[in-house]
Design a protein around this nucleic acid. Structure first.
Lengths: 294, 294
DNA sequence: CTGAAAGCGCTAACAT
DNA sequence: ATGTTAGCGCTTTCAG
Protein backbone atom coordinates (compact mmCIF):
# COMPACT_ATOMS: atom_id res chain seq x y z
CA UNK A 1 0.00 0.00 0.00
CA UNK A 2 2.89 2.31 -0.69
CA UNK A 3 4.08 1.95 2.89
CA UNK A 4 7.80 2.35 3.30
CA UNK A 5 9.22 1.43 6.72
CA UNK A 6 11.36 4.05 8.34
CA UNK A 7 14.73 2.45 8.82
CA UNK A 8 16.00 5.40 10.78
CA UNK A 9 13.29 5.04 13.41
CA UNK A 10 13.83 1.32 13.55
CA UNK A 11 17.54 1.82 14.03
CA UNK A 12 16.82 4.33 16.71
CA UNK A 13 14.59 2.04 18.66
CA UNK A 14 16.57 -1.18 18.34
CA UNK A 15 20.00 0.38 18.39
CA UNK A 16 21.05 -1.25 15.21
CA UNK A 17 21.61 0.55 11.96
CA UNK A 18 22.57 -2.25 9.59
CA UNK A 19 25.33 0.03 8.47
CA UNK A 20 29.05 -0.55 8.67
CA UNK A 21 31.84 1.91 8.16
CA UNK A 22 34.76 1.19 5.88
CA UNK A 23 37.72 3.41 6.60
CA UNK A 24 40.53 3.48 4.07
CA UNK A 25 43.62 5.63 3.65
CA UNK A 26 43.31 6.61 0.01
CA UNK A 27 41.15 6.22 -3.01
CA UNK A 28 43.97 7.20 -5.35
CA UNK A 29 45.52 3.75 -5.19
CA UNK A 30 43.07 1.56 -7.11
CA UNK A 31 43.72 -1.29 -4.71
CA UNK A 32 41.42 0.31 -2.17
CA UNK A 33 38.36 0.89 -4.36
CA UNK A 34 38.74 -2.69 -5.51
CA UNK A 35 38.60 -4.19 -2.04
CA UNK A 36 35.97 -1.62 -1.05
CA UNK A 37 33.79 -2.88 -3.85
CA UNK A 38 34.23 -6.48 -2.71
CA UNK A 39 33.40 -5.56 0.87
CA UNK A 40 30.35 -3.59 -0.15
CA UNK A 41 29.02 -6.53 -2.13
CA UNK A 42 29.56 -8.86 0.80
CA UNK A 43 27.91 -6.49 3.24
CA UNK A 44 24.93 -6.01 1.00
CA UNK A 45 24.38 -9.75 0.88
CA UNK A 46 23.93 -9.59 4.64
CA UNK A 47 21.56 -6.63 4.27
CA UNK A 48 24.15 -4.16 5.48
CA UNK A 49 24.94 -0.87 3.90
CA UNK A 50 28.50 0.39 3.73
CA UNK A 51 29.64 3.93 4.36
CA UNK A 52 33.01 4.67 2.82
CA UNK A 53 35.45 7.01 4.53
CA UNK A 54 38.57 8.14 2.77
CA UNK A 55 41.06 9.59 5.24
CA UNK A 56 43.64 10.70 2.67
CA UNK A 57 46.22 9.17 5.03
CA UNK A 58 45.48 12.01 7.44
CA UNK A 59 45.09 10.37 10.84
CA UNK A 60 43.42 13.42 12.34
CA UNK A 61 40.82 13.43 9.58
CA UNK A 62 40.48 9.70 10.11
CA UNK A 63 39.71 10.18 13.78
CA UNK A 64 37.18 12.86 12.97
CA UNK A 65 35.46 10.57 10.48
CA UNK A 66 35.42 7.74 13.03
CA UNK A 67 33.75 9.97 15.59
CA UNK A 68 31.10 10.79 13.07
CA UNK A 69 30.58 7.16 12.18
CA UNK A 70 30.18 6.27 15.84
CA UNK A 71 27.74 9.10 16.37
CA UNK A 72 25.68 7.61 13.63
CA UNK A 73 25.73 4.29 15.36
CA UNK A 74 27.37 2.23 12.71
CA UNK A 75 27.18 -1.36 13.86
CA UNK A 76 30.88 -1.84 13.25
CA UNK A 77 33.89 -0.75 11.25
CA UNK A 78 36.46 -2.25 8.96
CA UNK A 79 39.60 -0.17 9.15
CA UNK A 80 42.29 -0.52 6.56
CA UNK A 81 45.96 -0.02 7.19
CA UNK A 82 47.25 3.52 7.38
CA UNK A 83 44.00 5.35 7.95
CA UNK A 84 44.12 5.98 11.68
CA UNK A 85 46.26 5.88 14.81
CA UNK A 86 46.21 2.44 16.38
CA UNK A 87 45.81 3.94 19.84
CA UNK A 88 42.56 5.55 18.74
CA UNK A 89 41.37 2.34 17.12
CA UNK A 90 42.13 0.34 20.27
CA UNK A 91 40.19 2.84 22.32
CA UNK A 92 37.09 2.56 20.13
CA UNK A 93 37.38 -1.19 20.20
CA UNK A 94 37.57 -1.34 23.96
CA UNK A 95 34.61 0.99 24.20
CA UNK A 96 32.70 -1.84 22.58
CA UNK A 97 32.62 -0.91 18.89
CA UNK A 98 33.03 -4.00 16.71
CA UNK A 99 36.13 -3.46 14.63
CA UNK A 100 38.07 -5.49 12.11
CA UNK A 101 41.51 -4.45 10.99
CA UNK A 102 42.44 -5.06 7.41
CA UNK A 103 46.00 -5.41 6.15
CA UNK A 104 47.78 -3.88 9.12
CA UNK A 105 51.35 -4.72 9.94
CA UNK A 106 51.66 -7.43 12.52
CA UNK A 107 53.84 -5.55 14.98
CA UNK A 108 51.49 -2.63 15.47
CA UNK A 109 48.21 -4.45 16.02
CA UNK A 110 46.91 -5.39 19.48
CA UNK A 111 46.27 -9.14 19.35
CA UNK A 112 42.75 -8.88 20.72
CA UNK A 113 41.39 -6.93 17.75
CA UNK A 114 40.29 -9.23 14.93
CA UNK A 115 42.46 -8.80 11.93
CA UNK A 116 42.51 -10.01 8.37
CA UNK A 117 45.65 -9.66 6.37
CA UNK A 118 47.35 -10.94 3.30
CA UNK A 119 50.38 -13.05 4.10
CA UNK A 120 52.83 -10.43 2.94
CA UNK A 121 55.94 -12.35 3.91
CA UNK A 122 54.73 -15.21 1.76
CA UNK A 123 53.95 -12.73 -1.01
CA UNK A 124 57.53 -11.50 -0.97
CA UNK A 125 58.74 -15.09 -1.05
CA UNK A 126 56.54 -15.81 -4.04
CA UNK A 127 58.02 -12.94 -6.01
CA UNK A 128 61.53 -14.04 -5.10
CA UNK A 129 60.75 -17.61 -6.03
CA UNK A 130 59.58 -16.58 -9.47
CA UNK A 131 62.73 -14.55 -10.11
CA UNK A 132 64.91 -17.40 -8.87
CA UNK A 133 63.19 -19.91 -11.09
CA UNK A 134 63.81 -17.64 -14.06
CA UNK A 135 67.48 -17.49 -13.13
CA UNK A 136 67.82 -13.97 -11.74
CA UNK A 137 70.64 -13.34 -9.29
CA UNK A 138 71.06 -9.58 -9.28
CA UNK A 139 67.75 -8.19 -8.17
CA UNK A 140 66.46 -5.01 -6.57
CA UNK A 141 63.48 -4.09 -4.41
CA UNK A 142 61.49 -0.91 -4.10
CA UNK A 143 59.58 -0.94 -0.83
CA UNK A 144 57.41 1.49 1.06
CA UNK A 145 59.08 1.25 4.44
CA UNK A 146 58.36 0.82 7.25
CA UNK A 147 54.80 -0.13 6.36
CA UNK A 148 55.74 -2.92 3.99
CA UNK A 149 58.60 -4.58 5.82
CA UNK A 150 57.16 -8.06 5.59
CA UNK A 151 57.03 -8.05 1.81
CA UNK A 152 60.62 -6.92 1.73
CA UNK A 153 61.71 -9.47 4.29
CA UNK A 154 59.97 -12.33 2.57
CA UNK A 155 61.65 -11.42 -0.67
CA UNK A 156 65.13 -10.88 0.74
CA UNK A 157 65.12 -13.95 2.95
CA UNK A 158 64.25 -16.17 0.02
CA UNK A 159 67.15 -14.73 -1.99
CA UNK A 160 69.40 -15.05 1.04
CA UNK A 161 68.51 -18.73 1.28
CA UNK A 162 69.30 -19.16 -2.39
CA UNK A 163 72.73 -17.72 -1.82
CA UNK A 164 72.19 -14.37 -3.53
CA UNK A 165 71.63 -11.85 -0.73
CA UNK A 166 70.17 -8.55 -1.89
CA UNK A 167 72.78 -5.81 -1.29
CA UNK A 168 71.58 -2.72 0.61
CA UNK A 169 72.07 -0.40 -2.36
CA UNK A 170 69.61 -2.56 -4.30
CA UNK A 171 66.85 -1.72 -1.82
CA UNK A 172 65.17 1.58 -2.53
CA UNK A 173 62.55 3.47 -0.61
CA UNK A 174 59.19 4.40 -2.15
CA UNK A 175 55.90 5.65 -0.77
CA UNK A 176 53.46 3.49 -2.75
CA UNK A 177 52.80 6.15 -5.36
CA UNK A 178 53.57 5.90 -9.03
CA UNK A 179 56.01 8.78 -8.94
CA UNK A 180 57.98 7.35 -6.05
CA UNK A 181 58.40 4.14 -8.04
CA UNK A 182 59.62 6.18 -10.97
CA UNK A 183 62.33 8.05 -9.11
CA UNK A 184 63.43 5.06 -7.03
CA UNK A 185 63.97 3.20 -10.28
CA UNK A 186 66.03 6.00 -11.74
CA UNK A 187 68.40 5.62 -8.80
CA UNK A 188 68.61 1.88 -9.33
CA UNK A 189 69.44 2.30 -13.01
CA UNK A 190 72.43 4.51 -12.29
CA UNK A 191 73.99 1.84 -10.05
CA UNK A 192 77.28 0.36 -11.25
CA UNK A 193 75.75 -3.07 -11.80
CA UNK A 194 72.21 -2.83 -13.03
CA UNK A 195 69.76 -5.35 -11.56
CA UNK A 196 68.21 -7.83 -14.00
CA UNK A 197 64.94 -7.84 -12.10
CA UNK A 198 63.02 -5.49 -9.81
CA UNK A 199 60.34 -6.25 -7.26
CA UNK A 200 58.15 -3.26 -6.37
CA UNK A 201 56.05 -3.87 -3.28
CA UNK A 202 52.97 -2.18 -4.72
CA UNK A 203 51.66 -2.27 -8.27
CA UNK A 204 51.43 1.49 -8.42
CA UNK A 205 55.16 1.78 -7.76
CA UNK A 206 55.72 -1.02 -10.25
CA UNK A 207 53.96 0.99 -12.93
CA UNK A 208 56.23 3.91 -12.12
CA UNK A 209 59.15 1.54 -12.40
CA UNK A 210 57.88 0.31 -15.73
CA UNK A 211 57.70 3.84 -17.08
CA UNK A 212 61.15 4.71 -15.76
CA UNK A 213 62.73 1.67 -17.36
CA UNK A 214 61.10 2.31 -20.73
CA UNK A 215 61.97 6.00 -20.56
CA UNK A 216 65.58 5.00 -19.97
CA UNK A 217 65.47 3.18 -23.30
CA UNK A 218 65.51 -0.29 -21.78
CA UNK A 219 63.08 -3.09 -22.53
CA UNK A 220 60.79 -5.08 -20.26
CA UNK A 221 61.19 -7.96 -19.74
CA UNK A 222 64.24 -8.50 -22.00
CA UNK A 223 66.53 -6.07 -20.13
CA UNK A 224 64.82 -5.98 -16.76
CA UNK A 225 62.06 -8.18 -15.33
CA UNK A 226 59.48 -6.61 -13.07
CA UNK A 227 57.02 -7.86 -10.46
CA UNK A 228 54.47 -5.76 -8.60
CA UNK A 229 52.21 -6.54 -5.67
CA UNK A 230 48.44 -5.99 -5.30
CA UNK A 231 47.35 -7.29 -8.69
CA UNK A 232 45.16 -4.27 -9.29
CA UNK A 233 42.94 -4.31 -12.34
CA UNK A 234 45.05 -1.93 -14.37
CA UNK A 235 48.02 -4.27 -14.19
CA UNK A 236 46.62 -6.48 -16.90
CA UNK A 237 46.60 -3.55 -19.29
CA UNK A 238 49.95 -1.95 -18.76
CA UNK A 239 52.37 -2.54 -21.60
CA UNK A 240 53.82 -5.02 -21.09
CA UNK A 241 51.16 -6.48 -18.79
CA UNK A 242 52.54 -6.58 -15.27
CA UNK A 243 53.36 -9.79 -13.45
CA UNK A 244 52.05 -9.28 -9.95
CA UNK A 245 51.56 -10.98 -6.61
CA UNK A 246 48.03 -10.61 -5.37
CA UNK A 247 45.55 -11.68 -2.75
CA UNK A 248 42.05 -12.82 -3.73
CA UNK A 249 40.20 -9.62 -2.92
CA UNK A 250 36.85 -11.30 -2.53
CA UNK A 251 38.39 -13.67 -0.02
CA UNK A 252 39.93 -10.76 1.88
CA UNK A 253 36.60 -8.97 1.85
CA UNK A 254 34.70 -12.07 2.88
CA UNK A 255 37.00 -12.73 5.81
CA UNK A 256 36.70 -9.13 6.97
CA UNK A 257 32.93 -9.03 6.83
CA UNK A 258 32.62 -12.46 8.47
CA UNK A 259 34.84 -11.36 11.32
CA UNK A 260 32.89 -8.15 11.71
CA UNK A 261 29.42 -9.69 11.61
CA UNK A 262 30.52 -12.33 14.10
CA UNK A 263 31.42 -9.57 16.53
CA UNK A 264 28.22 -7.67 15.85
CA UNK A 265 26.22 -10.83 16.52
CA UNK A 266 28.16 -11.41 19.70
CA UNK A 267 30.10 -14.48 18.60
CA UNK A 268 33.58 -13.79 19.76
CA UNK A 269 34.92 -17.24 19.17
CA UNK A 270 36.55 -16.42 15.85
CA UNK A 271 40.32 -16.56 15.58
CA UNK A 272 41.76 -13.10 15.90
CA UNK A 273 43.91 -13.24 12.80
CA UNK A 274 42.96 -14.45 9.37
CA UNK A 275 45.86 -14.78 6.96
CA UNK A 276 45.06 -14.79 3.26
CA UNK A 277 47.39 -16.68 0.96
CA UNK A 278 48.89 -14.85 -2.01
CA UNK A 279 48.94 -15.96 -5.63
CA UNK A 280 51.27 -15.06 -8.46
CA UNK A 281 49.77 -13.73 -11.68
CA UNK A 282 52.42 -14.25 -14.33
CA UNK A 283 52.05 -11.85 -17.23
CA UNK A 284 54.47 -10.28 -19.68
CA UNK A 285 56.89 -8.34 -17.50
CA UNK A 286 59.08 -11.23 -16.38
CA UNK A 287 61.45 -13.52 -18.24
CA UNK A 288 64.88 -15.10 -17.91
CA UNK A 289 67.78 -12.66 -17.55
CA UNK A 290 69.69 -11.77 -20.69
CA UNK A 291 73.00 -13.30 -19.71
CA UNK A 292 71.19 -16.55 -18.99
CA UNK A 293 69.63 -16.40 -22.45
CA UNK A 294 72.98 -15.90 -24.17
CA UNK B 1 33.14 15.48 29.60
CA UNK B 2 33.27 12.59 27.17
CA UNK B 3 29.79 13.35 25.95
CA UNK B 4 29.15 12.36 22.36
CA UNK B 5 25.87 13.59 20.86
CA UNK B 6 23.72 10.96 19.23
CA UNK B 7 23.45 12.05 15.64
CA UNK B 8 20.92 9.35 14.91
CA UNK B 9 18.51 10.67 17.51
CA UNK B 10 19.07 14.19 16.31
CA UNK B 11 18.35 13.15 12.75
CA UNK B 12 15.27 11.37 13.93
CA UNK B 13 13.89 14.32 15.74
CA UNK B 14 14.70 17.03 13.23
CA UNK B 15 14.17 14.94 10.14
CA UNK B 16 17.53 15.73 8.76
CA UNK B 17 20.39 13.29 8.48
CA UNK B 18 23.17 15.41 6.97
CA UNK B 19 23.72 12.50 4.64
CA UNK B 20 23.44 12.45 0.89
CA UNK B 21 23.34 9.50 -1.44
CA UNK B 22 25.56 9.28 -4.48
CA UNK B 23 24.31 6.74 -6.98
CA UNK B 24 26.63 5.71 -9.77
CA UNK B 25 26.50 3.03 -12.43
CA UNK B 26 29.91 1.47 -12.04
CA UNK B 27 33.08 1.67 -10.07
CA UNK B 28 35.05 -0.20 -12.72
CA UNK B 29 35.41 2.90 -14.86
CA UNK B 30 37.82 5.09 -12.87
CA UNK B 31 35.93 8.18 -13.96
CA UNK B 32 33.25 7.49 -11.35
CA UNK B 33 35.48 7.06 -8.30
CA UNK B 34 37.21 10.25 -9.36
CA UNK B 35 34.07 12.35 -9.38
CA UNK B 36 32.80 10.51 -6.32
CA UNK B 37 35.88 11.60 -4.46
CA UNK B 38 35.37 15.20 -5.53
CA UNK B 39 31.73 15.12 -4.46
CA UNK B 40 32.56 13.56 -1.13
CA UNK B 41 35.09 16.28 -0.40
CA UNK B 42 32.59 18.98 -1.29
CA UNK B 43 29.87 17.41 0.81
CA UNK B 44 32.15 17.07 3.78
CA UNK B 45 32.94 20.76 3.62
CA UNK B 46 29.24 21.35 4.17
CA UNK B 47 29.21 18.86 7.04
CA UNK B 48 27.46 16.24 4.98
CA UNK B 49 28.40 12.61 4.79
CA UNK B 50 28.15 10.75 1.50
CA UNK B 51 26.85 7.24 1.02
CA UNK B 52 28.06 5.65 -2.19
CA UNK B 53 25.84 3.29 -4.13
CA UNK B 54 27.19 1.31 -7.05
CA UNK B 55 24.39 -0.09 -9.17
CA UNK B 56 26.58 -2.09 -11.56
CA UNK B 57 24.39 -0.63 -14.33
CA UNK B 58 21.56 -2.80 -13.03
CA UNK B 59 18.52 -0.53 -12.86
CA UNK B 60 16.59 -2.92 -10.64
CA UNK B 61 19.44 -2.97 -8.15
CA UNK B 62 19.61 0.80 -8.48
CA UNK B 63 15.96 1.14 -7.55
CA UNK B 64 16.42 -1.15 -4.59
CA UNK B 65 19.37 0.91 -3.38
CA UNK B 66 17.37 4.11 -3.79
CA UNK B 67 14.53 2.70 -1.68
CA UNK B 68 17.01 1.91 1.01
CA UNK B 69 18.56 5.36 0.85
CA UNK B 70 15.15 6.94 1.16
CA UNK B 71 14.25 4.69 4.09
CA UNK B 72 17.32 6.03 5.78
CA UNK B 73 16.19 9.54 5.16
CA UNK B 74 19.07 10.79 3.11
CA UNK B 75 18.56 14.50 2.68
CA UNK B 76 19.04 14.20 -1.06
CA UNK B 77 20.67 12.26 -3.87
CA UNK B 78 23.05 12.87 -6.72
CA UNK B 79 22.32 10.34 -9.42
CA UNK B 80 24.80 9.75 -12.18
CA UNK B 81 23.89 8.73 -15.70
CA UNK B 82 23.00 5.12 -16.31
CA UNK B 83 22.30 4.02 -12.76
CA UNK B 84 18.52 4.07 -12.70
CA UNK B 85 15.35 4.36 -14.77
CA UNK B 86 14.41 7.98 -15.29
CA UNK B 87 10.76 7.21 -14.55
CA UNK B 88 11.73 6.04 -11.08
CA UNK B 89 13.94 9.05 -10.53
CA UNK B 90 11.17 11.41 -11.58
CA UNK B 91 8.81 9.70 -9.17
CA UNK B 92 11.18 10.12 -6.21
CA UNK B 93 11.76 13.73 -7.18
CA UNK B 94 8.07 14.50 -7.32
CA UNK B 95 7.60 12.81 -3.98
CA UNK B 96 9.78 15.58 -2.64
CA UNK B 97 13.24 14.04 -2.48
CA UNK B 98 15.91 16.57 -3.48
CA UNK B 99 17.69 15.12 -6.49
CA UNK B 100 20.43 16.29 -8.81
CA UNK B 101 21.16 14.48 -12.02
CA UNK B 102 24.74 14.26 -13.12
CA UNK B 103 25.86 13.76 -16.72
CA UNK B 104 22.57 12.51 -18.13
CA UNK B 105 21.73 12.85 -21.78
CA UNK B 106 19.67 15.89 -22.51
CA UNK B 107 16.81 14.13 -24.27
CA UNK B 108 15.91 11.83 -21.41
CA UNK B 109 15.87 14.25 -18.50
CA UNK B 110 12.70 16.01 -17.34
CA UNK B 111 13.51 19.72 -17.37
CA UNK B 112 12.30 20.32 -13.82
CA UNK B 113 14.95 18.13 -12.21
CA UNK B 114 18.19 20.04 -11.58
CA UNK B 115 20.95 18.70 -13.71
CA UNK B 116 24.66 19.23 -14.06
CA UNK B 117 26.39 17.98 -17.14
CA UNK B 118 29.55 18.38 -19.11
CA UNK B 119 28.98 20.06 -22.43
CA UNK B 120 29.54 16.89 -24.42
CA UNK B 121 28.77 18.42 -27.78
CA UNK B 122 31.44 20.99 -27.16
CA UNK B 123 33.77 18.20 -25.99
CA UNK B 124 33.35 16.43 -29.31
CA UNK B 125 34.00 19.68 -31.12
CA UNK B 126 37.18 20.22 -29.13
CA UNK B 127 38.53 16.81 -30.13
CA UNK B 128 37.66 17.46 -33.77
CA UNK B 129 39.24 20.89 -33.64
CA UNK B 130 42.51 19.44 -32.36
CA UNK B 131 42.63 16.83 -35.14
CA UNK B 132 41.81 19.46 -37.76
CA UNK B 133 44.53 21.77 -36.53
CA UNK B 134 47.01 18.92 -36.81
CA UNK B 135 45.87 18.35 -40.38
CA UNK B 136 43.88 15.13 -40.08
CA UNK B 137 41.22 14.51 -42.70
CA UNK B 138 40.52 10.79 -42.46
CA UNK B 139 39.33 10.21 -38.94
CA UNK B 140 37.27 7.63 -37.09
CA UNK B 141 35.13 7.63 -33.96
CA UNK B 142 34.37 4.94 -31.43
CA UNK B 143 31.24 5.88 -29.49
CA UNK B 144 29.06 4.25 -26.89
CA UNK B 145 25.71 4.80 -28.53
CA UNK B 146 23.06 5.86 -27.84
CA UNK B 147 24.28 7.20 -24.51
CA UNK B 148 27.04 9.33 -25.97
CA UNK B 149 25.41 10.78 -29.02
CA UNK B 150 26.31 14.35 -28.21
CA UNK B 151 30.04 13.69 -28.16
CA UNK B 152 29.73 11.97 -31.51
CA UNK B 153 27.60 14.74 -32.97
CA UNK B 154 29.90 17.47 -31.78
CA UNK B 155 32.84 15.72 -33.35
CA UNK B 156 31.19 14.88 -36.64
CA UNK B 157 29.55 18.24 -37.12
CA UNK B 158 32.88 20.01 -36.73
CA UNK B 159 34.44 17.77 -39.38
CA UNK B 160 31.41 18.25 -41.58
CA UNK B 161 31.88 22.01 -41.34
CA UNK B 162 35.52 21.62 -42.27
CA UNK B 163 34.54 19.75 -45.39
CA UNK B 164 35.66 16.28 -44.28
CA UNK B 165 32.48 14.45 -43.27
CA UNK B 166 33.10 11.28 -41.28
CA UNK B 167 31.90 8.31 -43.36
CA UNK B 168 29.55 5.83 -41.60
CA UNK B 169 32.06 2.97 -41.74
CA UNK B 170 34.45 5.13 -39.72
CA UNK B 171 32.00 5.24 -36.81
CA UNK B 172 32.20 2.18 -34.59
CA UNK B 173 30.11 1.16 -31.65
CA UNK B 174 31.61 0.55 -28.20
CA UNK B 175 30.20 0.14 -24.72
CA UNK B 176 32.64 2.27 -22.75
CA UNK B 177 34.77 -0.67 -21.68
CA UNK B 178 38.39 -1.24 -22.55
CA UNK B 179 37.67 -4.42 -24.44
CA UNK B 180 34.99 -2.84 -26.57
CA UNK B 181 37.49 -0.16 -27.58
CA UNK B 182 39.95 -2.87 -28.48
CA UNK B 183 37.65 -4.80 -30.80
CA UNK B 184 36.10 -1.71 -32.35
CA UNK B 185 39.60 -0.60 -33.26
CA UNK B 186 40.43 -3.92 -34.84
CA UNK B 187 37.49 -3.41 -37.18
CA UNK B 188 38.67 0.08 -38.06
CA UNK B 189 42.17 -1.13 -38.85
CA UNK B 190 40.92 -3.63 -41.41
CA UNK B 191 39.10 -0.92 -43.36
CA UNK B 192 40.36 -0.27 -46.86
CA UNK B 193 41.62 3.21 -46.00
CA UNK B 194 42.96 3.35 -42.49
CA UNK B 195 42.09 6.48 -40.49
CA UNK B 196 44.98 8.71 -39.45
CA UNK B 197 43.28 9.60 -36.18
CA UNK B 198 40.72 8.09 -33.85
CA UNK B 199 38.48 9.73 -31.27
CA UNK B 200 37.18 7.37 -28.60
CA UNK B 201 34.35 8.86 -26.57
CA UNK B 202 35.62 7.49 -23.27
CA UNK B 203 39.19 7.14 -22.05
CA UNK B 204 38.68 3.51 -21.18
CA UNK B 205 37.79 2.73 -24.78
CA UNK B 206 40.71 4.89 -25.89
CA UNK B 207 43.08 2.74 -23.84
CA UNK B 208 41.65 -0.31 -25.56
CA UNK B 209 42.20 1.44 -28.86
CA UNK B 210 45.76 2.21 -27.88
CA UNK B 211 46.48 -1.41 -27.11
CA UNK B 212 44.85 -2.59 -30.31
CA UNK B 213 46.89 -0.19 -32.43
CA UNK B 214 50.16 -1.17 -30.78
CA UNK B 215 49.29 -4.86 -30.99
CA UNK B 216 48.71 -4.37 -34.71
CA UNK B 217 52.30 -3.22 -34.99
CA UNK B 218 51.45 0.42 -35.60
CA UNK B 219 52.79 3.40 -33.72
CA UNK B 220 51.02 6.13 -31.76
CA UNK B 221 51.00 8.94 -32.64
CA UNK B 222 53.17 8.51 -35.77
CA UNK B 223 50.79 6.16 -37.57
CA UNK B 224 47.54 6.98 -35.81
CA UNK B 225 46.67 9.81 -33.46
CA UNK B 226 44.29 9.16 -30.60
CA UNK B 227 42.06 11.26 -28.35
CA UNK B 228 39.99 10.00 -25.44
CA UNK B 229 37.37 11.66 -23.29
CA UNK B 230 37.08 11.84 -19.50
CA UNK B 231 40.71 12.66 -18.71
CA UNK B 232 40.87 9.99 -16.02
CA UNK B 233 44.00 9.85 -13.90
CA UNK B 234 45.45 6.81 -15.60
CA UNK B 235 45.55 8.60 -18.92
CA UNK B 236 48.68 10.48 -17.97
CA UNK B 237 50.49 7.19 -17.48
CA UNK B 238 49.53 5.19 -20.50
CA UNK B 239 52.29 4.84 -23.05
CA UNK B 240 52.18 7.10 -24.89
CA UNK B 241 50.30 9.36 -22.50
CA UNK B 242 46.78 9.88 -23.80
CA UNK B 243 45.52 13.19 -25.14
CA UNK B 244 42.06 13.56 -23.70
CA UNK B 245 39.11 15.89 -23.45
CA UNK B 246 38.00 16.35 -19.87
CA UNK B 247 35.72 18.28 -17.58
CA UNK B 248 37.06 19.79 -14.36
CA UNK B 249 35.80 17.17 -11.95
CA UNK B 250 35.91 19.45 -8.94
CA UNK B 251 33.75 21.93 -10.83
CA UNK B 252 31.30 19.20 -11.79
CA UNK B 253 31.17 18.04 -8.19
CA UNK B 254 30.83 21.54 -6.87
CA UNK B 255 27.94 22.33 -9.19
CA UNK B 256 26.18 19.10 -8.22
CA UNK B 257 26.50 19.63 -4.48
CA UNK B 258 25.51 23.31 -4.78
CA UNK B 259 22.40 22.37 -6.70
CA UNK B 260 21.55 19.66 -4.19
CA UNK B 261 22.11 21.76 -1.07
CA UNK B 262 20.06 24.57 -2.58
CA UNK B 263 17.14 22.17 -2.91
CA UNK B 264 17.66 20.78 0.55
CA UNK B 265 17.66 24.29 1.96
CA UNK B 266 14.52 25.10 0.02
CA UNK B 267 16.05 27.56 -2.44
CA UNK B 268 14.57 26.49 -5.72
CA UNK B 269 15.72 29.50 -7.66
CA UNK B 270 18.73 27.81 -9.20
CA UNK B 271 18.84 27.23 -12.94
CA UNK B 272 17.83 23.68 -13.72
CA UNK B 273 20.79 22.90 -15.93
CA UNK B 274 24.43 23.63 -15.29
CA UNK B 275 26.70 23.02 -18.24
CA UNK B 276 30.39 22.48 -17.52
CA UNK B 277 32.86 23.50 -20.20
CA UNK B 278 35.39 20.93 -21.41
CA UNK B 279 39.16 21.34 -21.72
CA UNK B 280 41.65 19.55 -23.92
CA UNK B 281 44.67 17.93 -22.25
CA UNK B 282 47.22 17.50 -25.02
CA UNK B 283 49.68 14.71 -24.29
CA UNK B 284 51.68 12.34 -26.43
CA UNK B 285 49.08 10.44 -28.43
CA UNK B 286 48.38 13.08 -31.08
CA UNK B 287 50.50 14.57 -33.84
CA UNK B 288 50.29 15.59 -37.47
CA UNK B 289 49.36 12.80 -39.90
CA UNK B 290 52.18 11.04 -41.70
CA UNK B 291 51.32 12.12 -45.18
CA UNK B 292 51.30 15.71 -43.97
CA UNK B 293 54.75 15.19 -42.53
CA UNK B 294 56.15 13.86 -45.79
C1' DC C 1 -3.46 -13.76 21.25
C1' DT C 2 -4.35 -9.08 20.33
C1' DG C 3 -3.89 -4.21 21.52
C1' DA C 4 -2.18 -0.29 24.11
C1' DA C 5 1.72 2.13 25.99
C1' DA C 6 6.52 3.07 27.15
C1' DG C 7 10.84 4.39 25.59
C1' DC C 8 14.96 5.12 22.47
C1' DG C 9 17.92 10.68 22.66
C1' DC C 10 17.30 14.50 20.81
C1' DT C 11 15.01 19.15 19.36
C1' DA C 12 11.53 22.46 19.33
C1' DA C 13 7.67 24.45 21.08
C1' DC C 14 5.92 25.57 24.81
C1' DA C 15 5.10 27.35 29.82
C1' DT C 16 7.00 29.33 33.73
C1' DA D 1 15.76 34.14 30.48
C1' DT D 2 15.40 29.32 31.88
C1' DG D 3 13.14 24.86 32.55
C1' DT D 4 9.72 21.43 31.07
C1' DT D 5 7.37 18.47 27.90
C1' DA D 6 5.64 16.58 23.64
C1' DG D 7 6.78 14.08 19.81
C1' DC D 8 9.61 12.01 15.88
C1' DG D 9 8.20 6.15 14.10
C1' DC D 10 9.43 2.24 15.31
C1' DT D 11 10.02 -2.06 18.55
C1' DT D 12 9.28 -4.25 22.66
C1' DT D 13 7.01 -5.06 26.67
C1' DC D 14 3.23 -5.50 29.44
C1' DA D 15 -1.60 -5.60 30.25
C1' DG D 16 -6.11 -6.91 28.83
Amino acid sequence: MGYRPNILARSFSQRKTFTIGLVLPSIANPFYPEVAEAIEIGARQSEYQTVLCDTFRDHALGKQQMERLISRWVDGCIIMEGSLDMTDIAQYFHQGLPIVLCDWQEQETPPEIPHVRGDFFQAGTLAAQHFLELGHQHVAVIADEPGQTLRLQGFCSRFQEAGFPVPPEMIQQGNSTLNSGYSATQKLLTASTRPTAIFATTDLMAIGTLNAILDAGLRIPQDISLIGLDDINVSVRTRPALTSVGFPKDQLARAATDLLFAQIDGHNDHPALQLIEPYLAVRKSTTTPRNAQD
